[in-house]
Simulated scan of single mutants.
Amino acid sequence: MRHPSAFGHAARILALGAFVQAVASGPASAAEVQSIMPLAAHHAVYKLSLLKASGAKAPEAVDGLLSYDFTGSACDGYAMTLRQMTALQPQEGESRVSEMQTASFEGGDSHDYRFRVATKGDSSGPGDINGTAHKSADGDVSVALQQPKPEKIDLASGVLFPTEHLKKVVATAKAGGKILTAAVFDGSDTGKKVFNTLTVIGTQTDVPPAEKAAQIDALKTVHRWPVAISYFDASKTDSAPDYVLSFDLYENGISRALRLDYGDFVLAGDLTDLKLMPDTPCKN
């Protein structure tokens, strides 16, 4: 059973071959990406819980908290910090407690990316991860890891970084697109893993959000869409995704109503606190 740290991908959009393509309406163009509203600097807290469970591998209960901060601009770059604490109660044995802290910075042009992941407690991962990634003018991506051990990796051309991917998802939704496929690298898991992602975008919704934290004036006129992203391990050839993440995505990058489906069980991440921070507009 995979450790439920993939909510980190939700915040980065958790955030979904080496290509970017929207089906039916065509991929979001550079102009369409530029036309979306600026991503909002914000602090968000999500309550994690077990929504559904079936099968022998499913836990009996999950309790946790995810704290997420996002700041920056297209000129200065984007900084993200995330802290996730999770207590998972298996059907047999003692509860397993873990904590993950992630920090990343992505350049405004998405050519450079820095990432650091630290884990504590019960975790089957490789431990702390620290590295940088660079995208050339031709789109080739190279990764330089410092932890868990010094290593250099070349990724296929066309791989997206998290904020770059988020912008393309929003731009595709705004343009009326329903499907987006993309290869995404965020430095999680082993620091070397690429996820092939399939994003399915629903119809724009104006239904008032259930969470009190999302019922703020600043979001009342912001468009949002239900989104489901399937994450596939790019190194595997089978057709089953590692997990499917669904949520409501606002045009300014804020997310609510997170749901993470591992097959045997589904986790919920409900927005309990949201604070918008001052934007840092580009200087002339």
Rank of each mutant, 00 (worst) to 15 (best):
P241Q: 07
D242T: 11
F232N: 14
S5F: 15
L276C: 02
V200D: 01
A103V: 13
V227G: 01
G121I: 01
D69S: 10
Q215Y: 02
R116E: 09
Q84S: 11
A228H: 10
G64W: 03
P281M: 07
Q147P: 11
D261G: 13
V194F: 07
A228N: 10
A183M: 04
H165N: 12
H165W: 04
D140M: 12
E251H: 03
L16A: 12
F195C: 05
V20W: 03
M277F: 09
L276T: 05
D242W: 04
T199S: 13
V170E: 02
I229G: 13
Q147T: 12
K220T: 02
Q204N: 13
L160W: 03
I179Y: 10
L258S: 10
D154H: 05
M100Q: 14
A87V: 08
H165S: 14
Q147Y: 10
D109I: 12
G253V: 03
G55T: 09
A213K: 08
P281D: 08
V23N: 08
R224C: 00
Q91E: 09
V207G: 07
D248F: 02
L249V: 05
V200Y: 08
E106S: 04
K275Y: 06
P150T: 10
S142H: 07
H134P: 01
S73T: 04
D273Y: 14
Y78A: 03
D270L: 14
A182H: 04
W225T: 00
V20I: 11
D217K: 01
M277L: 15
L66S: 03
D138V: 05
G72P: 00
P241I: 08
A18E: 12
F161S: 05
D189Y: 02
D140R: 14
A144H: 12
F7G: 03
S104P: 00
T272G: 11
A133V: 10
N252F: 00
E164I: 02
A182Q: 10
A213P: 08
G108W: 11
K167F: 00
D264P: 09
N130P: 02
N130W: 12
Q91I: 01
E94G: 09
A133Y: 13
T132K: 11
H42F: 06
D233A: 15
A31F: 05
N130D: 15
P162I: 02
L50E: 04
D261M: 09
K212W: 01
A175Q: 11
N196P: 08
F161Y: 07
G55S: 13
H134S: 14
K135I: 03
H9L: 11
P126H: 05
L267S: 07
D233K: 14
